[in-house]
């Protein structure tokens, strides 16, 4: 029974966070904008006058839809993820709601878990809406059910999960949502540029100067520890599968575990930060 109670609190907070998130005008704005772009991608083909080579039909229009939709989902999806993850806790601190929640018989861990789950609900709902429209656009264009898109969307979610968890961790230390929002963008950018660290590591070995060696070793450690969001580039590749592509299922399962593992890391940092806050 206590187990059920332990989850009732977080669940209530998650549902409340989700409802509150759906009322945010910024997020609805992003969502509408992304849906418009995905819908509009179907008409991008009208800019192309050339759709055949001789009598041979080309798939440029289909490629246009795929590329634009995947990028739109990535860009707007990550914006929604960062904004909602950055604002969930600081907003409640600002409007003092957090004090009345934490005065209830609910632990800080339960509160954070509820908030984090609520954020994930919002991200999933937004992603599902964008994905549904993309799915229909592809179905309309290619005439067959684009099942690979579902896997692509799933991978996109796990990429966002990492960004969301670390942004959430920053937000737990912040009193306003500005800093975590900037932090979220920074996480997304650095996560995509982690491969630069390998370059730094290799180039630092070119001289034997002390500072160079230190920089190289730091880059080496960071490149091992930091999440590499470029690993998720498979989300775009599987939509344009070529006949001689290596099997993607091996990467796929690892990517899901990778996403969950770093999300847990981010959440642990959030818990560690939040438990030290004086509220």
């Amino acid at each position: 029974m206590s187990g059920v109670n332990a989850f009732r609190g977080p669940w209530t907070i998650a549902v409340y966070t989700w409802r509150e998130g759906l009322r945010k005008k910024t997020l609805i704005g992003f969502l509408i904008l992304s849906l418009l772009v995905i819908f509009g991608s179907n008409f991008m083909g009208s800019f192309l006058n050339q759709s055949t080579v001789g009598s041979e039909e080309l798939d440029v229009n289909l490629k246009l839809v795929k590329d634009i939709c995947v990028s739109t989902i990535s860009i707007f999806g990550v914006l929604i993820t960062i904004f909602i993850s950055a604002a969930a806790v600081p907003n409640e601190t600002e409007n003092k709601v957090i004090y009345s929640i934490l005065s209830k018989p609910i632990s800080r861990l339960q509160y954070l878990l509820g908030k984090f789950i609520g954020i994930q609900f919002i991200v999933i709902i937004n992603l599902a809406l964008m994905g549904l429209l993309f799915f229909m656009a592809l179905w309309f264009q290619q005439g067959t059910l684009p099942t690979l898109l579902l896997w692509s969307i799933l991978l996109t979610y796990f990429e966002f999960l990492i960004v969301s968890a670390f942004t959430f961790a920053i937000s737990c230390a912040a009193t306003s949502s500005v800093l975590p929002t900037i932090g979220g963008f920074f996480i997304y950018l650095t996560g995509n540029l982690t491969e630069y660290l390998n370059d730094v590591k290799i180039r630092s070995g070119e001289s034997e100067e002390f500072l160079d060696v230190i920089i190289g070793q730091t880059a080496s450690v960071l490149s091992s520890i930091l999440p590499n969001l470029q690993n998720f580039s498979l989300k775009q590749d599987i939509l344009n599968l070529q006949l001689n592509d290596p099997p993607s299922d091996m990467q796929f399962t690892r990517l899901l575990i990778y996403g969950v593992t770093y999300a847990v890391s981010g959440f642990i940092i959030a818990v560690w930060v939040f438990r030290r806050r004086e509220l």
Partner: peptide
């Protein structure tokens, strides 16, 4: 664990 899976993915 993340680093291990990351190396594997790499």
């Amino acid at each position: 664990l993340g680093s291990f899976i990351g190396n594997n993915l790499q």
